Amino acid sequence: MDKERELQEELVWNAGYRMNESLRMIKICLDQLSEEQLWEKPNESSNSIANLILHLCGNITQYGIASIQNLEDERVRDEEFSTDSGYSKAELVKKLEDTISDAKRAFYDAPLNELLRKRNVQGFNFSGVGNIIHVTEHLSYHTGQIALWTKILQNKDLGFYGGVNLNAKNES
């Protein structure tokens, strides 16, 4: 395997791993919440967890799927935040799972030149690699918001890393 393909696969595998971790954490949060809590907002200037999931699906589709696969950008961003019902917890989980799966497939299938090509998304100019990084960090960012709101609602540790020694030292 050539070094370019090896680097591409390493990038895509690590982005996919981080996306799967965020999905795992979001599912842990949702398992602890009622259908009503999913749509509850902490205050008027904040979003519900359901809105954040819709927003993540829109963003991942725009940056990670449509842009990298050269598909038409059909995102209607404002609807991600204005929607206040219409999806169950199970439907939101499925939508997020499918979106993440489709994005990971788009990352893996993209030829190297597509990962290096610059393109404009939401007025920003990034390569396909830049879009992969954006999708990964944006998902992680909102996963943290979902975790915080869940902790506030449930007043307990979420146990994301139960059984893992997070104090272990680095090994060479």
Rank of each mutant, 00 (worst) to 15 (best):
N59F: 07
Y87F: 13
A106D: 00
E74T: 15
E97T: 10
L52Q: 06
S45Q: 13
W149P: 07
I133A: 14
S140Q: 13
F124H: 12
Y63D: 04
G123Q: 09
A50P: 00
T136H: 03
Y63F: 15
L115G: 01
L52M: 12
N51L: 10
K151G: 13
N51Y: 04
T136L: 06
N155S: 08
Y141G: 10
S127D: 09
Y87R: 02
S48P: 04
N47Q: 05
F81A: 05
F126W: 15
E80F: 06
I100K: 00
Q154W: 04
N125P: 03
S140W: 10
E40Y: 13
K118Q: 15
G130H: 05
V135H: 02
I100M: 01
Q62K: 01
T83W: 09
P111Q: 09
H55W: 09
H142V: 07
D73A: 01
N155M: 04
R119N: 10
V129M: 10
V93A: 07
T99C: 04
Q145H: 15
T143E: 06
P111E: 13
P111I: 11
E79T: 13
I132S: 00
H55V: 05
R117S: 11
N113A: 14
G130T: 06
T61G: 05
I53A: 02
I146L: 01
A90V: 15
L54K: 02
N47Y: 10
G58K: 03
T99I: 04
S46L: 12
D102L: 14
S46G: 10
V76E: 12
T136K: 04
L71T: 07
A50E: 00
T143Y: 01
I100T: 01
L148Q: 11
N70R: 09
Q145T: 07
L92V: 04
D98C: 08
L112N: 12
L71C: 04
V93K: 09
R117I: 06
D109N: 14
L38H: 01
Y63H: 12
K95M: 15
L38T: 05
E74M: 12
N51C: 10
E44N: 13
R119L: 12
S45C: 13
S127I: 09
N120P: 03
F81C: 02
Q154H: 03
E44S: 15
I100Q: 00
T61A: 07
Y108G: 08
R75A: 02
I53W: 01
I65W: 00
G86Y: 07
I133L: 15
D109M: 10
T83P: 03
I60S: 02
F124V: 13
T136A: 09
G64N: 05
T83M: 10
N47V: 08
T99A: 07
G144R: 07
S88H: 06
A50Q: 01
D84V: 13
N59M: 05
F124A: 15
H55F: 13
C57I: 03
H138E: 09
A90L: 13
K118R: 09
E40S: 14
